[in-house]
Simulated scan of single mutants.
Amino acid sequence: MGLNQYRPYLIKFQSLIALIILCIALSFLSDKFLTIDNGWNVMRQISVNICIAVGMTLVVLTSGIDLSVGSVLALCGAITAGLLKNGIEIPSSNLFIGFTLLGAIVAGILSGGLIGCFNGWTITRFKVPPFVATLAMLTIARGLTFLWTKGFPISVLGDNFAYIGTGWFLGIPVPVWISAIVIIAAVVITGKTPLGRYIYAIGGNENAAKLSGININKVKIIVYSFAGALAAIGGLIVTSRLDSAQPNAGNSYELDAIAAVVIGGTSLSGGRGSIWGTVLGAIIIGVLNNGLVLLNVSPFWQQVVKGFVILLAVIIDKANSKAE
């Protein structure tokens, strides 16, 4: 009886409990884990996943999924790098269009938003399952990335661009500031706006939401557009940090994003979850990745461990749903 009394609290704080246990275990296993430098390193690493996972959360809350975010990240990072370094040449018209840093960044983010918009339009207009539509975009965006870069990295992008991924502002890494802004914006949208209420309503019961007068298609297109734009922001951080747009960047990033969403308590069935939960899930994934590296665990085993963590999180989610 006593355990049942505390069950709701255990379910509510299960991610936080898991993070605390993980940190305690890693602090005993590695003396490098609980250091300031390693802490900032983890925060920089998870900033990209937070951007992607926040967009993924909005999608999953509507009972959807977006498997294309890793490829969109690579494509938008490459577009930004290409425009910044080479501009656009139109030899037939003897025309060259150069881009400032801000112009290239805006173009990259808009590209991500447009790709996400296309995903949403395909899903709503043709009733294609989100899994299939975004899986197709995963391949399309990756192919476009290789076409844009011709299979070679676009490097040496300048110190101003590098500042986005490697700089510090007020003693905090710039990527952490970017991810914080993304988090705050998403929290406001989901908790304080009609759009946020519509997102939860659609995920909870799409038919009821439709009968309530909510424009289901419009909301879904907006949500997928957000996911694409946030993946592009993640691409800017990755490209800036490496000072290079790699054609194969973002491989498997969608898996880390989905893991963060599920571990954070967002139901894959939609309608239940929070941005803060996803942030906590991203921190758990980041700490886990960092800990496995510090312990010199093989990259192959790291994939195995993360796969089991995702599976365990889904099992717990299903168990909690039945309990409710």
Rank of each mutant, 00 (worst) to 15 (best):
Q45T: 13
F118M: 09
A104K: 00
L58C: 15
M43Q: 09
C23D: 00
F28E: 02
D31W: 07
F96Y: 11
G112I: 07
R44Q: 08
T35K: 07
F99A: 06
G64V: 11
S30R: 06
I36M: 12
L135P: 10
D31L: 10
M137W: 03
I115R: 00
I105V: 15
I115W: 00
T122M: 11
K32H: 09
G55P: 04
I36Q: 12
S93A: 14
I36A: 12
T145H: 05
T80E: 00
I46H: 01
I79H: 01
I46Y: 03
D31R: 12
N38P: 10
K32V: 04
A25M: 14
I50F: 05
L26G: 01
T134K: 06
T145E: 02
I88M: 15
G39N: 04
V72E: 02
V69Q: 10
G113I: 01
S93D: 07
N38F: 06
G98S: 12
F146Q: 12
T100L: 09
L22R: 05
F146K: 09
G82Q: 03
T134V: 06
P130V: 06
T57D: 13
F146E: 10
G70E: 02
L114N: 05
A136L: 13
I123L: 12
N41T: 09
V72T: 14
N41G: 11
F96Q: 09
T122L: 12
F99W: 05
G108M: 00
L29C: 11
P129I: 14
N86W: 09
N41M: 04
V54F: 11
N86F: 13
L101I: 06
P130C: 13
I36V: 14
A136K: 08
A81G: 06
A53H: 07
I20A: 12
A74V: 08
F126Q: 06
I97N: 08
G103W: 02
I79W: 00
L110Y: 04
I65N: 08
V48R: 06
D37S: 15
I97T: 07
K85E: 03
I46R: 02
G120Q: 03
L101A: 02
G108L: 03
L84E: 01
I21R: 00
G39M: 05
G108E: 01
T149R: 07
L144K: 07
R44T: 03
G64N: 10
S93G: 08
T134H: 04
T80Y: 00
G82K: 05
L110K: 05
M56K: 12
S27L: 10
N86L: 08
I20P: 01
R44L: 02
W148P: 00
G113A: 13
T35D: 02
A133S: 15
M137R: 05
F99G: 04
L29F: 13
F146S: 05
R142S: 13
T124Q: 07
F118D: 01
T134N: 05
T35S: 11
L95R: 11
F99M: 08
R125F: 05
V106L: 15
Q45D: 15
L110G: 04
L34K: 06
G77S: 01
L114P: 08
A107D: 10
L61P: 03
G70L: 02
A78S: 15
